[in-house]
């Protein structure tokens, strides 16, 4: 219980517009242990990014956390921190690799400046050479050539940009990396390279990783445990192996079933609208989860 890097309890997020209130996250709970990789997976619109942003307290308007706790390192409730305290925790403890990293870098700043300002916001580093060496070393760690140091984002390919983002996120050795679809918008080969880079860095720094995605195939290779999301609910949590080999929830079963395989062709429509709404109608905010086997939890419908 005490070794959790992140413990999310009954987190609820609403987007309240003047027309209606969208409940994007409906009271989800999960935790991540030290050094562990948790995959958060689910279809588009299921609330994955919202969950990540709520943890980071970066929800975009009109998003509001309306309930729950997000405990970091077993003692800090991120949701109650003052703005100053929050700034201190950001990047030193919690780092983000954003979704669609194509636009994650400031187009008018050199790569080195963008890595440097994050470091300098938290660490006194008066020796300019030392800082530059440190940044160059980071770039080398993610497999980028040295010239990238002085380049602007538009001079880099998508894969390179994403690796800059990984280097940036790793720069202060945070306890948790949150990567929101770090490989979407990349071709399959580059996806694998970037994913591997991410895993390497994670191993080297011995941090925990919350990785969001909808590619269950890629996720299967990266995550130790997986949480399956639909419609603002988590319906199943367990080790990757267990969930893949014996999915308990109907939605997880469909998801696992839809995993592409080169050996056997499958119909493309893995889930139709009726089944989907049947599943989500059965879920409700008070849904409890039961433990089928140790560490493998499933929502009761």
């Amino acid at each position: 219980m005490n070794s959790y890097v992140l413990d999310v309890r009954k987190l609820k997020v609403d987007y309240a517009t003047s027309m209606k209130t969208i409940q994007a996250v409906k009271g989800i709970s999960f935790s991540i242990q030290k050094g562990e990789t948790l995959g958060l997976i689910g279809e588009s619109g299921s609330g994955k990014t919202t969950t990540a942003m709520a943890i980071l307290r970066l929800l975009q308007n009109p998003g509001r956390v309306v309930g729950g706790e997000v405990i970091l390192n077993s003692d800090i409730d991120l949701l109650t921190l003052s703005e100053r305290e929050l700034r201190k925790v950001r990047w030193t403890e919690l780092a983000l690799i954003t979704q669609g990293s194509m636009n994650s870098l400031n187009p008018t700043m050199r790569v080195c400046e963008q890595i440097a300002d994050g470091i300098l916001a938290h660490k006194e580093m008066n020796d300019k050479n030392e800082l530059n060496e440190y940044i160059k070393n980071l770039l080398k760690l993610v497999g980028l050539p040295e010239r990238v140091f002085n380049q602007f984002p538009h001079e880099l390919s998508g894969g390179m940009k994403q690796r800059v983002c990984i280097a940036m996120a790793a720069s202060l050795n945070p306890s948790l990396l949150i990567a929101d679809e770090p490989t979407s918008a990349l071709d399959v080969i580059t996806q694998r390279i970037v994913a591997q880079t991410l895993l390497d860095i994670k191993e080297r720094l011995n941090t925990s990783l919350l990785i969001i995605g909808h590619d269950i195939g890629l996720m299967a290779q990266m995550a130790d445990r997986v949480a399956v999301m639909i419609d603002g609910f988590i319906v199943e949590v367990g080790t990757m192996q267990e969930v893949l080999s014996s999915p308990e929830h109907q939605y997880t079963q469909i998801l696992v079933d839809s995993m592409p395989s080169i050996k056997r062709r499958k119909p493309l429509t893995a889930i139709d609208e009726r089944t989907r709404s049947e599943i989500s109608n059965k879920l409700c905010v008070s849904s409890e989860m039961t433990e089928v086997t140790t560490g493998h939890w499933v929502a009761v419908n």
Partner: peptide
């Protein structure tokens, strides 16, 4: 923009973000 959000995630000071980003 994504890069402004990332700048916030970095824990940069708000006025610095306004200026440089």
């Amino acid at each position: 923009a994504d890069y402004v959000r990332l700048a916030q995630a970095k824990g940069l000071k708000p006025f610095y973000i306004l200026k440089k980003y």
